[in-house]
Write a protein that binds this DNA or RNA. Sequence first.
DNA 1: CCGGATCCTAATGGATACTG
DNA 2: CAGTATCCATTAGGATCCGG
Lengths: 102, 102
Amino acid sequence: MDYSRMCPKYEHAAELLGKKWTGLIVRVLMGGPKRFKDMKEQIPDMSDKMLTDRMKELESSGLVKRTVYPEMPVRIEYELTEKGRDLEDVILSIQNWGEKWM
Amino acid sequence: MDYSRMCPKYEHAAELLGKKWTGLIVRVLMGGPKRFKDMKEQIPDMSDKMLTDRMKELESSGLVKRTVYPEMPVRIEYELTEKGRDLEDVILSIQNWGEKWM
DNA sequence: CCGGATCCTAATGGATACTG
DNA sequence: CAGTATCCATTAGGATCCGG
């Protein structure tokens, strides 16, 4: 049995979730669509670069949808896709474990 | 609302699980106590150093218990603690999500 | 058998300043 | 408002050799 080749999907998912800020960002988006500045307000310890980097990752992983509203000034909203919303169970189970043991 | 200070336990847990090999190691140990060489066999892509580093982390985090049997040659076994075994739900929920979406 | 020690590279995290 | 760009420090990951 070779676990390193057995569970690539698991590994990929875990590495995604384990990156710093990712879980917090997903949690914020669980509250509905948000703008860049909204997220900065709710996670003030995170730098602009980190937020930008993570949003790009989340978008390219299909967890988040980015919509540009061509107003003036331009408005951009981020919202979870179904794939992203489906993470809720995972996040709750990590949360429960963390509360119990950390 | 400041999420970055709200969820330190969640963050810590997620970063632990997100590190490479950690999930696989815990999965292997779910099958019962294992020796160093057993784990290398089941996760052959992982280097000795990675296994050593992860086992130390897991031990100092209280997920794994290390027992030395003073035989000749010395035998060392690693097994999950209750804290470690309690991760099963978390791992399964990541697994389910990964299978569905990745 | 079970690592430890060393060395190296790549990836990540972050501070700061700037822009359409 | 919603990012870029730059630079720097730290960490993670890994190859290889060594030792009780």
